[in-house]
Design a protein around this nucleic acid. Structure first.
Lengths: 216, 216
DNA sequence: CCTACCGATCGGTAGG
DNA sequence: CCTACCGATCGGTAGG
């Protein structure tokens, strides 16, 4: 028997469903992988955040690698993803949407960190996220090419649109990196906007983009 | 005594100096850190490449962290660095120089991988390369701002030049990342050039850059 | 979902 | 520059 005055804890004994548990774990994993990276982020660290042992985490996901994949899929559902499940906006709306995503990202460095850390690590040998990240980049490039086509001036080739698309994604990622390292020195939104607008303007002008740096 | 016909190996018994040994180790470390990342790249892996044990490597560098710093400093001396010790070119020459670096990088994915892997990892907590990478970005931004000032049109603010500079560095890094993951789908040189030329053109046009995406 | 444990890897040190 | 070793960490499994 308990002490006389001791009341049963107010904890509303809500049995958490497996789905809820998995969700908690994925969020904790996203945080840990973003903070320490995938290699260094341990299951023990993740488990502690949700109040269980690392064996408990493995019960839910089978392996650390499977948990990483779950984090990536979660990210695609979450709003860090520029398209968050919806159909990608076309034409100029797409570019506006991308800038909206960047604007939102300013307020959630944690999510950005998860994305940047995993993406950066994915270039290493046999990294479990490698094909995932590679395919996501390829899909993103295609989507943006299609949208640029709609706003492009005459005479710009598919090849050039693909280059423009690659460069747009590159700016977004590269500026995020600098911003994470030094948020006070880097204006994430405006720096990204500068290049995005310049590139889009160049695409709209059409084929003969200004060539301040002529080829050798 | 050796076998009759056996000649003393032609190996010219050149005693390697400590400096030479350190150099070999640094190169091996750059390769390993680029291929596996810093966390996963082990001293044992590095030691094997130069024919010694990991204790031998530690004899030369004291710690894994010190070896990483040596790799970063080596990178600054090597030609992956856009400025490679020389005084940075001013004005339009700088931009040309940056494109030249990118062009050279097309032929040395190994070095680029080392750079991208370490840079990407550096956003994680307490990463030994973090302050190094952060300071390098800050210095690079300053240099590019100064060069842009020389070619800038009238009425463009320092703030905007800093944004342009940030975005230029961002494109270079972001496109390198996509290229490493999928070299066949990404034209490193031309994709980078697309944005660099667009941004430089925008800077030259001066303050009122084209605003296809008006602010809300 | 836990306890208990295994096998493996790793960075670093001692001591030569 | 090596041998030998330590302490620590980690992912995963067994068995409940």
């Amino acid at each position: 028997m308990d002490q006389a005055g001791a009341v049963t804890p107010t904890r509303t004994r809500t049995r958490k469903s497996t789905a809820e548990r998995r969700d908690e774990i994925v969020r904790a994993a996203a945080k840990t992988f973003g903070t320490k990276g995938y290699q260094k982020g341990s299951l023990i660290d993740i488990a502690e955040q949700v109040g269980m042992t690392h064996a408990g985490v493995l019960h839910h996901f089978g392996s650390k690698e499977a948990l990483l994949i779950a984090v990536l899929e979660y990210r695609d559902r979450a709003d860090l993803d520029p398209f968050a499940g919806k159909l990608p906006p076309a034409g100029m709306d797409l570019l506006r949407h991308l800038m909206g995503t960047i604007a939102a990202n300013c307020a959630r460095p944690g999510l950005v960190k998860t994305y940047v850390a995993i993406t950066g690590e994915s270039v290493t040998e046999d990294h479990p996220a490698r094909s995932y990240v590679t395919e996501r980049f390829a899909a993103l490039r295609e989507t943006i090419v299609a949208s640029l086509r709609e706003v492009a001036g005459p005479g710009i080739s598919d090849e050039e649109l693909n280059q423009a698309s690659t460069s747009l994604i590159g700016v977004m990622d590269g500026v995020q990196l600098q911003w994470l390292l030094d948020p006070e020195a880097v204006d994430l939104l405006e720096s990204t906007r500068f290049a995005v607008e310049a590139v889009v303007a160049s695409v709209m002008l059409g084929a003969a983009r200004p060539t301040p740096l002529s080829k050798p």
